[in-house]
Design a binder for these strands. Structure first.
Length: 879
RNA sequence: GGGCGCUUAGCUCAGUUGGUCAGAGCGCCGCCCUUACAAGGCGGAGGCCACAAGUUCAAGUCUUGUAGCGCCCACCA
């Protein structure tokens, strides 16, 4: 077998099979096909992104589903693509510009965009190449990018439709503001972190009379924007002040004291400084009491011209320092206490966000949410695991309007135009359309772009150039299943469902599978920003793509986070090597077969091992199907692993050696046929999980009229091949062999040395029929069996299902060791015997338990009893 | 403050609807370079399934409570 090396080397085969599949066009899906479609759209990774292990898990699952459905005869269509990721990409472009010493302010919009596209062409889409290395069988000719011309048109189309429906409006209010990207961000992009901060108490002197009010705050610098102080109107301490005013320290301003139910008298001092321009609660209070709204910050969160001179242009941090100093110097600072509170951080900028007054575009969500809630509620869309439904419902039911405008350039510019020089608040001065006004020279387009998620939310139909009606759209929408991480359930999944219902009138997918979140040893999410995600490409180089795919699935149970470490990939590598060598063995020992034989020719000659392994195979097929259908990929993989390693390699192949090395040609052919046939089925079952090695090996075992494994029919389980008699007998045989081996090992019989075996048993069927197997696998030279045989002197004993096994060990036997061994077994058995006995003495059990369960318990008791008797008598003989 | 999840062998975890002496991988111990595979083979040690109560003939599995850990959501200055 010169072409199959002893150790599997994935690097030698992966590349060539991938280009072969591509060349053959196997990944292509046609909307004209007669076959039923099976469609997945990839969650489009950021163009800026590189592959993480999270993507590997996610993509492997999709590839498993696609490859399996392709083998099952569906028109499998996996649509790949990337997301323009406006904030992330713009940040990268900014970094590049900085390196080139170019300032964004000096560039026109188009010049900036040109730089951005240059960057995208040069560095973007690395991740697509990486997905190919992993073996993903995407239809690459359908690759989409969220800023492709057609896709962009679809995005704008969606905006215009919603605007025309009255669901999109412009609002001047507080938004979450990221000072780094200097843009508004949505509520979902704000991450709350618990921080150790301080709570300062500041004295605000009353205006026109003696006395003062004390307020507590975590952000003293915002006092420069205070336009009021609020107390609870029920609070006897303070209600007398309502309607009066105070002199705001450090400024020359006089601001009113108002009564508002929002104030909790128990908290802090019971008085709240009100900064309507920089705090959402204060914003509401301000509106209720007609307070002024002062914006004291620039877009980068430094203080602006609305504050007194000496604080202008200071950063918010520096301003806080100075203000506290001055308050303290002037006697306004009463005290400061350590205080733990939540601070909102920008998802991308990783700095605290600011609440900032600005004009933004909003999408009304309530009406969109209703149908989306319904389809999940009624089971048109199913989540796996289902507990995510609660999270989804909770968010949907409390949904707030979505701020969809961003003060960025890279993205879809909002398709709204304002008449030059006119009041843009009047409807007649606003134009909204995909193509813009007929007289563009008189209009100015809105400068903002859309939130990235306001483009990716139409992904399942946007990739088919909606709203054009195409065959593709008809054939491949709705998609079959969505595979994604639970972290984007609000960002993306929920919004896609809303968009699907709104624009297509139909759900975008029937099932959603939420993958495990991968964490490092410290429990932190693997992410590129933390730098704790090993480079999957390195792991692929080290272990092979098949091994990585297989391992990551094996360690990722449904609905649970995974502690990832690179060493865990060894399990897959070892398995691939095992499979490789099993195939080598089969290949080496079946060269006498001229063609791959039909199973039917030899099936009538099946003996126990062949019947057994066939039965095991069909149970395996059944279970693999069940697990995949239930989205339990770890179980599916484990099932194949166990069958291949334990049943096929450890038992079937070992047993087959007897016939393969023997001279019974019929027997040999039968065993060869079965060995090949089972291996072929294993390769098919495994192909979706480990595509490269299975394709490679397949070509050693396929018939001349069969094609590549990627298009070979998926195995079908046949109930008639499940043979429980064979399985039971085989189990006993395995126990006999294991017992013999155990005795040998514990008595220190060297592996090379053959032993004799004496079996005392009523029914000698097993010992007679499978003597050759017991001898071969147990290292036994002769077997003697019968009902009235007496125990040979100096022999070690084991009891298996009514059989007493004796191995004469003359001289080798250590009586104490043997006693210990039997005692231990006896104790163990007695414990279980007593527990079963208790169960059977329980009248209620006998009355209420289903008869088969009762029967089973009785049988167990009987068998245990028999074994106990034999153990006891053998133990007595040792004394 | 609300919601969700987790707690099983030294480590990382499986265990789908309650019912075969509780499983795997890694690690550990012993023996083996046996002509498919030392990335391997054979044998073995190791667990009151977090704790408590309940439902049931029967609980790792269902219910409730307790403790610890983790995640998500929420405007208390």
């Amino acid at each position: 077998m010169e072409n199959l090396k002893k150790i599997f080397s994935p690097e030698l085969i992966e590349k060539q099979w991938y280009s072969y599949w591509l060349k053959k066009g196997y990944f292509r899906a046609s909307s004209d096909s007669e076959k039923s479609p099976y469609t997945i759209v990839i969650p489009p990774p950021n163009v800026t992104g590189i592959l993480t292990m999270g993507h590997v898990l996610n993509a492997t699952i999709q590839d498993v589903l696609i490859r399996k459905s392709r083998m099952e005869g569906y028109e499998a269509c996996w649509i790949p693509g990337t997301d323009h990721a406006s904030i992330a990409t713009e940040a990268k472009v900014m970094t590049m510009l900085q390196e080139k010493n170019i300032k964004k302010e000096d560039l026109t919009r188009n010049e900036f965009l040109n730089h951005a596209w240059d960057w995208k062409e040069k560095y973007g889409g690395i991740i697509i190449q990486q997905l190919k290395k992993l073996g993903c069988s995407c239809d690459w000719e359908r690759e989409s990018f969220t800023m492709d011309a057609e896709y962009s048109r679809a995005v704008l189309e969606a905006f215009v439709k919603l605007y025309e429906k009255g669901l999109i409006y412009r609002g001047h209010r507080l938004v979450n503001w990221c000072p780094v990207s200097q843009s508004a961000i949505s509520d979902e992009e704000v991450i709350h972190k618990e921080m150790q901060g301080k709570l300062w108490t500041i004295r605000y002197p009353l205006n026109g009379e003696d006395g003062a009010i004390e307020v507590a705050t975590t952000r003293p610098e915002t006092m420069l924007g205070d336009t009021g102080v609020a107390v609870n109107p029920q609070d006897d301490r303070y209600k007398k002040y309502i309607g009066k005013t105070i002199n705001l320290p450090l400024t020359n301003r006089v601001i009113p004291i108002v009564g508002d139910e929002f104030v909790d008298p128990e908290f802090g001092t019971g008085c709240v400084k009100v900064t309507p321009g920089h705090d959402p609660n204060d914003f509401e209070i301000g509106k209720r009491h007609n307070l002024d709204f002062i914006n004291i910050m620039n877009p980068d969160a430094s203080l602006n011209e609305n504050v007194i001179d000496k604080y202008r242009n200071l950063s918010r941090e520096k301003a806080r320092e100075k203000i506290l100093e001055e308050l303290n110097d002037k006697g306004f600072l009463v005290n400061q206490k350590p205080y733990i509170h939540n601070v909102g951080f920008s998802e991308r900028g990783s700095v605290p966000i600011e609440y900032y007054l600005s004009e933004q575009w909003y999408l009304k969500m309530k009406t969109l949410a209703e149908p989306a809630l319904k389809v999940v509620e009624e089971g048109d869309i199913n989540f796996h695991p289902s507990h995510w439904v609660k999270t989804y419902n909770h968010w949907m039911k409390n949904i707030k309007d979505w701020c969809i405008s961003r003060q960025l350039i890279w993205g879809h510019q909002i398709p709204v135009w304002y008449k030059k020089g006119e009041n843009s608040n009047l409807p007649e001065n606003i134009h909204v359309s995909v193509n813009g006004p007929d007289d563009p020279e008189n209009w100015e387009q809105d400068e903002d772009v859309l939130d990235t998620w306001a483009s990716s939310w139409i992904w399942p139909f946007g990739v088919h150039d909606w709203p054009q009606k195409s065959r593709d759209l008809e054939a491949f929408y709705p998609t079959t299943v969505l595979v994604t991480g639970p972290d984007i359930i609000f960002f993306w999944v929920a919004r896609m469902i809303m968009a699907g219902k709104e624009f297509m009138g139909e759900i975008p997918f029937k099932d959603v599978y939420f993958t495990s979140i991968l964490r490092d040893e410290k429990g932190r999410k693997l992410s590129k920003s933390l730098g704790n995600s090993p480079d999957p490409l390195d792991l692929i180089d080290q272990y092979g793509a098949d091994a990585i795919r297989f391992s990551i699935l094996m360690i990722s149970p449904q609905g649970m986070d995974v502690l990832f470490s690179p060493e865990r990939m060894e399990l897959g590598r070892n398995f691939m090597n095992k499979l490789w060598n099993a195939a080598r063995f089969v290949k080496m020992n079946t060269s006498s077969l001229e063609t791959i034989p039909e199973l039917g020719e030899v099936e009538h000659e099946f003996q126990l091992p062949e019947k057994w392994i066939t039965s095991r195979l069909h149970i395996t097929i059944q279970n693999v199907n069940r697990h995949i259908n239930n989205f339990r990929f770890n179980e599916a993989v484990k099932t194949i692993y166990d069958f291949t390693w334990s049943d096929y390699c450890d038992w079937m192949i070992e047993i087959s050696k007897i016939s393969l090395y023997g001279d019974d040609l019929n027997r040999k052919k039968c065993v060869q046929t079965v060995a090949v046939s089972i291996l072929r089925q294993v390769l098919c079952l495994l192909h979706p999980f480990a595509p490269f090695i299975t394709e490679e090996l397949w070509h050693h075992f396929k018939t001349s009229d069969e094609g590549d494994i990627i298009k070979t029919p998926w195995p079908v389980h046949d109930k008639n091949k499940i043979d429980s008699d064979a399985e039971q007998t085989m189990t006993v045989l395995q126990e006999v062999i294991t017992s013999v081996r155990s005795i040998r090992s514990s008595m220190g019989v060297s592996p090379g040395k053959k032993a004799d075996l004496v079996i005392r048993v009523k029914d000698g069927f097993l010992a007679k029929n499978y003597e050759y197997i017991i001898k071969f696998l147990g290292g036994i030279s002769s077997i003697q069996s019968g009902e009235n045989i007496s125990k040979p002197p100096n022999s070690a004993t084991a009891v298996v299902k009514g059989m007493e096994l004796f191995i004469p060990l003359e001289g080798l036997i250590d009586v104490n060791l043997e006693k210990e061994r039997l005692e231990k077994r006896k104790q163990e058995l007695t414990r279980h015997y007593e527990s079963v006995q208790r169960t059977l003495k329980n009248k209620k059990f006998l009355e209420k338990a289903p008869p088969p369960v009762v029967e089973n318990e009785k049988k167990k008791l009987e068998e245990m009893n028999l074994e106990l008797e034999k153990l006891t008598s053998n133990l007595e003989m040792l004394n």
